[in-house]
Structures are given as structure tokens and as C-alpha cells.
Amino acid sequence: METKLRCLPRLLLILFTFSVVGQTAVLSSTESHQRYVKHASGVHPVVLLPGNTCSQIEVRLTDAYEPLSPLCAARKGDGRWSRLWKNNTAADAEVPCFADQLRLVYDHAAGDYRNAPGVETRAVSFGSTRGFLADDAADKELCMGNLVAALEREGYRDGETLFGAPYDFRHAPAPAGQANRELSLFRRRLGALVEHASKANGGMPVILVTHSQGGYFALDFLRRSPLPWRRRFIKHFVMASTGAGGFVLSMQGLATSIAPSSSSYSSPSPSDVLSMPSVGRTFASTFTALPSPVAFGDDTPLVVTRNKSYAASDMPAFLAAAGLPPYAVRLYETRALPVALNLGAPVVPVTCVNGFGMPTPEMLVYRPPGRPRARPRGGVRRRRRGRELGKYSGA
């Protein structure tokens, strides 16, 4: 899912050239592209949606917050925003505080996910690409940093022709008619950003570029937008490394509870806090990329353990075996699964970008304790039915 984005700058320039020049030949060199972008009377602005965990999240604690310890109460009630995710400079002792403040709670009365009481959060710098560029240099390419740099070399400018739409990656789309405050707010803000980007560039429609989880948010946004609006404001939708029908690797973290050969995560650092079950399993987005029966079929085994195999149609049983409480399994059935089963076309020009030559698990096989794990079988083979083949023994 986290395919590198090296090809996207060139792809966007090709899309731009075709859309403006029409029947003329595509410019042949990077220098020609740069010259055209800088001197054109108008360009198609680009709006970027990053991948999972790339958006930076800030927190503010009100007097209603009940801290786990005096350390967690250090910023309570002071009215100031501070970095919650991703905080690489925090001490390991703050991990329990981050975990408590990052977790989501499902409000049964409201029928929606929300923060813990007294916790307010926001995505940083909406409208700018600076809002999701990771502080850690190792994450720069994963979080569109290299893509932004490449586009800026070609003449794009943050806040002028290049925009970012960071989001709260803990949340996820829900079926129509169900409460989903976070996504409703995001859709309104994204719509206003697209309109602003277009109007600031002479009415040119926008090229919407997403990576990984950002693709799910964009699909939800486009499908809920009126068709005349889409035709007016969206020139092209580029969806990079988004498994619209889910992917097997999303089951791996959950499978640790049912796989006897796997070990639990211990002593995480602040940058690893999302790996804690008490945090990550509370997110609505935990279910977003689980394999859909539409894409994977009802009978194909995806996780194989000593005692049982699980196909996409067995997801409720898989989640229960993984230790999720009954209400969480029910949320998968009533919120995440209907979205996956009713995924439709955005009805705008679309380009999907997926990596090749990348190890892509189709099955996770867990061996009993004491038995050596088998090596990956099959490797990466020719694509079939939209999925990379190759079965791997699980971690």
C-alpha cells in the first residue's frame, strides 16, 4: 500500500501538458516541462492527500480530561495546542499519555467515533503541503516529501498552485445516513479548498493526487459531491497505492492475537504508539483496508493458522478471534463493510498507480510454536484479477 512515489511528478506533468496543449505533442524533456509551467497563463493546481499516519495531529486538553498520571496532565486546561502525532522528540515516559489521547471512543448514543473526554484534536496546516511532511527524514518519501520537492522544482508553489489536505487518519468513511462528523467536516473543507485552488488559478480545474489511505478519503469525497461540481472543479484524480478492495497485509497486525508463533509489541517509543492494541484498534480506520469479499471472493483463504483459515467473508469471525469486542465486530459489519461492498467509480478521469516488483502478500500463513517458519513461497508473479500473486508465510 505504501508504494514509493517516484513516477508521480512526471505523470502529473504529462497530464498537465495534455490538458492544456490539447492536440500538440507532449514536451520531451524536464526542462521543457519546467519552462512551460512557469510561463503558462494558467496551470491546473494540484491538491495532495497523503497516506496513513502522514498527517500531523495536534492536541488540546480541556478541564474535562482525566489524565492517567500527573505527567499526562502537564498541559491540561492551558488552552494551548501541542504535537500529539508524530512526536519523535518526546520521552518514552510519555507513551501512555499519547496512547490515552490518541485513542478513539465509539459513542453509542451519537452513533459516531469521538476523542476521549476532554481531548480536542486537529490536523495541522490544512491547505498546505507542510501539514503532512514528516519530521523524520526517513519518512519523507513515504509522506509525499519527495513528490512535493519534485513539483516545486517544476514551478509549483505551496499555497499558490500546490495545496495539501491533511486529515485525521484515525477516522474512516461511513455509509450514507450514519453519523460521521470528522469526515463530514473534512469533505466540506476539501471542497472549499478545491474551489479556492481553482479560482486562484484562473478557474482551472484541479488535479487531485492521493496516496494510500488518502485515496479512500478522496473517493468518499468525490462520490458524495454533485456530478456537475465534479465536472467543473476536478480535472483528474490520481490514486497512488490505494487498494480499493482492501489488501491482505492489513490483517497482519490483527492476526498477532490468533497466531501462536507471533509475539506482542512491547515498550513502544512515541513514534510507535500506534502499534499498541489499546490505540490502533480503537480507530475507525482499522477496518478501512480489510479485504472485501467483492475483490477477494468468499472462499479464498487469506489467513491460515493451525486451527482455522479465514477468507474475506469470514472477517467478523477473524476479528472476534483477534480479540476485538463484539461491539467492534458489529461496527465493522455496519460501518466499514457496507462502504467496501458499495465502492463505486468517482465519475471523473482517474489514473491508478501501483508499484510492481514489490513483495505483495496474498496469504498469511502462521506455523505452530516450535516449528520453523517457511520462506515466502511464490514470489511476485504476473498480476491477475488486479492482485499480485505470491503466498507468504506470516510474521
Rank of each mutant, 00 (worst) to 15 (best):
N307Q: 08
D298P: 02
A244S: 03
D272P: 00
M251I: 10
A255P: 09
H236Y: 03
S275M: 12
S271K: 13
V303R: 05
K235G: 02
A311G: 01
T256N: 06
A311D: 00
S269L: 06
F283G: 09
A284C: 11
F287A: 05
L302A: 06
Q252A: 14
P268Y: 03
P277A: 09
G245P: 09
A240F: 10
G253N: 12
F287E: 02
T288G: 05
P270R: 05
L274P: 01
Q252L: 13
A289L: 04
S261R: 13
V303C: 03
V248Q: 14
G246Y: 12
V248Y: 10
D272H: 02
A255R: 01
A295I: 00
H236R: 15
L274S: 14
S257E: 08
V248S: 07
D299N: 05
V294G: 01
F287Q: 02
Y265H: 14
S292E: 00
S271N: 15
L302Q: 06
A312Y: 08
G243C: 11
T256D: 06
A284R: 07
V294A: 03
T305M: 02
I258A: 14
N307W: 11
V303S: 01
S266D: 10
A312C: 08
G253R: 06
S264P: 14
M251Q: 15
A259K: 01
P301R: 04
M239E: 10
G246V: 10
S257R: 08
G253L: 05
V304M: 02
S313Q: 06
P260E: 14
M251C: 15
S263W: 00
S271D: 15
G245W: 15
P291Y: 02
T282K: 09
T305A: 04
V248H: 09
N307S: 09
T286S: 07
P301F: 01
L254N: 09
F247Y: 11
D314Y: 10
V248A: 12
P260D: 13
S278M: 15
S262N: 04
V304C: 08
D299P: 00
V304K: 01
T300C: 13
D272G: 11
G243S: 14
P291E: 04
S285A: 08
S263E: 10
G280C: 09
H236T: 12
S313V: 05
F247A: 13
D298R: 10
Y265S: 10
S278K: 14
P270S: 02
S250L: 01
L254G: 15
G243Q: 13
G297R: 09
S262E: 07
L290G: 03
D272R: 02
T256P: 02
T242Q: 12
